[in-house]
Amino acid sequence: MVSPIVEAPAPTVSSTPGLLPPSRSQVSVRGVGKRFAARKGAAVVALEQVSLDILPGAFVSVVGPSGCGKSTLLLAIAGLERPTSGSIVVEGEEVKGPFPRMGIAFQRDSLLEWRTVLDNVLLQADLRGRSRSGYIERGRALLQMVGLEAFASHYPHELSGGMRQRVALCRALLHEPTLLLLDEPFGAVDALTREQLNVDVSGICEVSNVTTMLVTHDINEAVFMADAVVVMTSRPGTVAGIVEVDAPKPRTHGFRSDPAFLRAATAVRELLEATGGFRR
């Protein structure tokens, strides 16, 4: 079995034996660093020498201590934040701006309060300047997939937090992305809803065959949904190690008591502890 991720400790492709050929990986991060110039005091080095490869169709979670640069890494892959060193290649092309077949969702659902649920999903087409008539059907199908078809003409303030997050997910998927980037999308919902969303999204990603990168603080969530969990060190963030989760997707609630799940979760915790992410 080919591992869904291969860590590349060296900054260049050629110098690293055993690395996947770039044509095989969908996202290829090479020696990426990011420093933020500070107005006062020293510049903040958010990322240092981050390298990883994500294979098509893989679900990869990223965990690490707060402030270690997870969001920065996600935004760099999204083409919304320029790395100060290294390079990122998505589907064979160097990232210079937002990749057209990318979907993104953040911690806060960022729904537009003045648009109905369906119109919020269609915002994706509007923002891209595409005629929305070609997307209405897909928008409705996505809402049906997350069980919200009856709420298409409701307004966001009439929905619960979990429902809003599902709408944001439909919006991220409207244009049939091949790469889905999620930055703590379940951070603001309650634990029960969160576990349900984990199952839902695991299914949706599997059906839509979209490569997914999920940034999260929750180790259980990271392991539950992923083929592999990237563990980062505290700032400056770099890859501490990668824990693979060897179990079929999509995952269902029962997976939480599966030995494979428990093994991987323990491995992630041990890695965090060994690399200073957890204090002893």
Partner: peptide
């Protein structure tokens, strides 16, 4: 997986 996520009117997600 998908049928599991279908909303029930009496669920916690009521408008």
């Amino acid at each position: 997986v998908l049928s599991r996520s279908t909303e029930t009117p009496s669920g916690p997600d009521e408008p």
